[in-house]
């Protein structure tokens, strides 16, 4: 600590705060240091696989073959990254992922708001059951959906089309949104809505100009969530997206992993690149995220 000289200069009475204050300042005990070290080691263990990727993604194939995975690269090589970037049409996959996740984030929030408006504000009959019906979308295992939907999208000509995934996940994600927003709107201040009705606002007008603006923080949290959840999806995109230029980021990587002749440095570089968009997203929305996870947890 750098405050040692300051405490020496201050009068002895100020050294300890009066006993009544909330946070008593006392020295950190050895056991507290041990806890800190253990927790920090745990955190290191969690990021360790990603550090390994970072170290090995910049090795040339020869360097990788001759060195230990824990050693730093001899020289920075971008061979693996270049091979992955161009060889697998990664920019296309990145765009597919962004487009699909972005559309789902927007559409699922719209759908959640509409459902929740009828349940939370309209208080329609049987609303508890309705919430359960919508929650089914979240409960049902995806392998229950994929064969019938595969056939349906095949008939509609939507296979290998991003919209097959967008439609499906708009419904699946809106289950959580409907549940969360319904309980929020159930406690929406009645006076505001009454005032609007007296002023002649229609229902849709109240929804658009009063409720949505007030809910905006929650809606943005939901959007971030829907985006990440959809980005990470695997089974249904694997089933619906089959042509090379329709693949999403996880699918491209999985395909590369499955090919026997794939060079390891290409695979490692590819894994690192596939992680980067999520990490950037995480850093931008860190606050929103931690606020959001807890928003849904307990009502």
């Amino acid at each position: 600590m750098t405050t040692a000289p300051a405490t020496r200069l201050s009068p002895p009475g100020n050294k300890h705060r009066p006993a009544g204050t909330k946070h008593k300042k006392r020295g950190r005990t050895p056991s507290e240091w041990i806890v800190l070290v253990l927790i920090a080691l745990g955190a290191l263990l969690v990021v360790f696989p990603m550090l390994l990727l970072l170290i090995n993604a910049f090795k040339s194939p020869a360097d990788y073959a001759n060195s230990n995975p824990l050693e730093l690269p001899q020289a920075l090589s971008f061979d693996g990254i270049k091979a992955f970037w161009s060889g697998n049409n990664f920019p296309r996959a990145l765009w597919n992922s962004v487009f699909i996740s972005g559309m789902v984030a927007i559409l699922a929030v719209v759908l959640s708001v509409l459902n929740a408006f009828a349940i939370g504000i309209g208080r329609v009959k049987g609303r508890t059951w309705l919430i359960l019906v919508f929650l089914m979308a979240n409960l049902v295992p995806q392998e229950m959906l994929f064969d019938p939907l595969f056939k349906l999208y095949d008939d509609l000509g939507l296979l290998s089309n991003p919209w097959s995934v967008i439609i499906t996940f708009t419904v699946i994600q809106s289950a959580f949104g409907t549940y969360l927003l319904s309980s929020l709107l159930g406690t929406f201040p009645k006076e505001i809505l009454e005032a609007a009705a007296v002023d002649g606002a229609s229902r849709f007008r109240s929804l658009r100009s009063i409720i949505v603006p007030i809910l905006k923080p929650t809606l943005s949290v939901l959007m971030v969530f829907f985006f990440i959840w959809t980005w990470n999806e695997f089974l249904l995109p694997l089933a619906f997206l089959n042509t090379d230029d329709s693949l999403t980021v996880p699918l491209v990587l999985e395909q590369l992993n499955g090919e026997r002749q794939t060079d390891t440095t290409t695979l490692v570089a590819g894994t690192l690149i596939s992680i980067i968009p999520t990490i950037i997203f995480f850093l931008i929305f860190q606050r929103t995220l931690t606020r959001g996870i807890t928003a849904g947890a307990v009502k």
Binding site: A43, N232, F234, V249, N257, L267, S274, I275, F281, T290
Partner: peptide, 25 residues
């Protein structure tokens, strides 16, 4: 909060990508 974010990081990675990483290791 920094340590909390570190523990949370694997949650936001695509599971498929995490799987490929582990199969490499």
């Amino acid at each position: 909060s920094f340590l909390r974010a570190t523990y949370y990081l694997p949650q936001i990675l695509p599971i498929a990508v995490a799987g490929v990483m582990f199969s490499w290791i």
